[in-house]
Design a protein around this nucleic acid. Structure first.
Lengths: 341, 341
DNA sequence: AAATTTTTGATTTACGTACATCAGAAATGG
DNA sequence: CCATTTCTGATGTACGTAAATCAAAAATTT
């Protein structure tokens, strides 16, 4: 049987109340007594029964998710995952609120963050737009001892406690290698479509992609990046224009959202143009395009995992507990048409 | 605040004891009363607090993992993950025992399974060798209402409650596409190395691999499968021999274990022979080979996830609770040198 | 050594559920 | 309508921890 607080009390020769004071760092225990208890805890290998503790505390965690609006499938899926979490909220002792802000809108994001200053909040998760103002707003929350977690896209040099998302440099590198290897001996131009260079995830993907392309696939030349603002319409028209302007394009990498528009543009030039295409985010559109051969590979981050991980981290941070870094690592999923879930 | 048993009692106009009888399907409740309570449960949306329930029950789950011996890294890793689970055992209210059996040894596996007949066991997880005798032994356990979960490799047409592992047909198909696309316009022979056709995971990987190769890459010809019994030494010598016998081999797929031997054989013929290589299981050896370019892609199943999933499923099954299929789906990881964890 | 402050002990209630007991009520049989 | 069986209520204890209260003991100050 695993040891309980009673066993510590007995082992340390003190009362239950004193053990409680030590365990919950309450005042009124002499240093020598505290050390006696801590030794006993270590020696008999006591581990707090978190379930029982939470039951006794009756604690609930008010959490906030700040996510961008926008009608691309990924953000839609992310919002839906957060929503799912609110449904499980009562059983996880959380109380989750969702705040929506326009995408790539720094003042709006700052306003949303500042709204939670001084509030009774156990944690804030946000999809960060990488700007100094946002960094400062996050700093203000952290200064108030509110746990802050960035979701999907990180915030450079900020005080945020944790980042729940994939390694975007690695993602970009992987995309480059897939595209380069799939193209084999072919030479030509590669078009990269991004949402905005204002967000760090997109910048990092491009960085990783460019690095591997330059190092390992010199026969492929990168065209200037197209910024589609994660908007399907805009993305589609940008790609259509690029394809009509150059006949040498052999590959496309979409590191942002807006795949719906991209896919439509691709279908418009098929089958005359032979293109190898790698995109991010598995949605109903990219899935169908993967199956029908319009797209060759999809890189994906599991929004559900990211949301659940963010919640775990915020709760742990609020309780001053350590997070198991390995368990919270978000993996990059690679989907070909054969391993779709 | 989420509703409790007290709220049900009040809502249904019955006593706490009656609610308890209904919730835990104890006898002594008239049909009409039972229905009254069940309606109240549904209407106020009561969800049992599992933490509190487990606390009250003081229940522990005695679980058994039957894993193959053998000194390949994957099984080593699997055993180590089970061992890790035994360390977390006390906090998860489990009591995990590990039984080791020789690999591909049907009688030994059957004996191990039968040893748990009539024992007080909350669940058995096994790496299945796909044979009728094993199927029968699993049937006997299931008949005793002991939850049985297959791990890594499944058991055809058996009564096992759940399979905690990847979709091996999809894995084989994915390997074929990666190999085929990486080879581009090259033509030649492909060597497939397996552990044993006695285990279903290997058979399925081969099946998926062969299908995609035949459908989509007719320029690549499959050589007869080499059976390396997941033994590094044997695998290495088989591959060395194959490579010396044919100069037309352009690709290798190792769908089993024993990568250490394969890698040694590959290094022996490098850089004269240009080979594209896809293997299974990320280990220290395959990781190094991926980084130095000896291997082009590694397909992986996360043994830790599999073990943890198996535990969750056995506990849920023992309690007669439903498992969330989506959450227990084990993903196929694809690693290139750029996205190593 | 007395007065004061600090530390410790003993005890109780609570969290939400499980489980057992016993008495009393309701339904059923004859 | 009474006897019997079946159902229901009331109540208490337990799980391991948190948190509060009050009294008693020990340490510290004067």
């Amino acid at each position: 049987m695993r040891p309980t607080v009673h066993d510590i009390a007995a082992a340390a020769g003190v009362s239950l109340a004193t053990v409680d004071r030590v365990l919950n760092q309450r005042p009124g225990v002499r240093l020598v007594t505290r050390e006696k208890v801590e030794t006993a805890i270590r020696e008999i290998g006591y581990i707090r029964d978190v379930a029982a503790a939470n039951l006794a505390k009756g604690r609930i965690y008010p959490l906030v998710f700040i996510v961008p609006t926008g009608d691309n499938s990924f953000m839609h899926g992310l919002r839906s995952e957060v929503h799912h979490a609110t449904i499980r909220a009562s059983i996880e002792r959380t109380d989750i609120r969702i705040a929506e802000v326009p995408p790539f809108d720094v003042p709006a994001l700052v306003a949303a963050l500042d709204a939670f200053q001084g509030q009774d909040i156990a944690g804030v998760a946000l999809v960060a737009t990488d700007a100094p103002e946002v960094r400062a707003a996050v700093g203000r929350l952290v200064a108030e001892r509110i746990p802050v977690v960035t979701l999907v896209s990180d915030l450079t040099d900020s005080a945020r406690h944790h980042y729940a998302g994939i390694d975007n440099i690695a993602a970009g590198r992987t995309a480059a290698r897939l595209l380069g290897r799939f193209l084999g001996d072919r030479k030509g131009e590669i078009t990269v479509l991004a949402g905005s260079m204002l967000v760090r995830d997109h910048r990092e993907r491009l960085q990783g992609f460019s690095a591997v392309m330059a190092e390992e696939f010199p026969k492929l030349r990168l065209l200037p990046v197209l910024e589609g603002r994660d908007d399907p319409e805009l993305a589609g028209s940008l790609v259509s224009r690029a394809l009509s302007e150059s006949r040498d394009i052999v590959g496309i990498y979409n590191l942002g959202a807006g795949n719906r528009g991209l896919i439509a543009a691709l279908k418009a030039v098929r089958p005359e143009r032979e293109l190898t295409v790698v995109v991010h985010e598995l949605t109903q559109h990219t899935r169908a395009a993967l199956v029908d051969g319009t797209i060759d590979a999809v890189l994906n981050q599991d929004a559900g995992h990211e949301v659940r991980s963010a919640i775990r981290v915020m709760k742990a941070t609020a309780d001053g507990q350590a997070v198991i870094a390995d368990q919270e690592r978000i993996r990059l999923d690679i989907f070909l048409k054969d391993n779709l879930p």
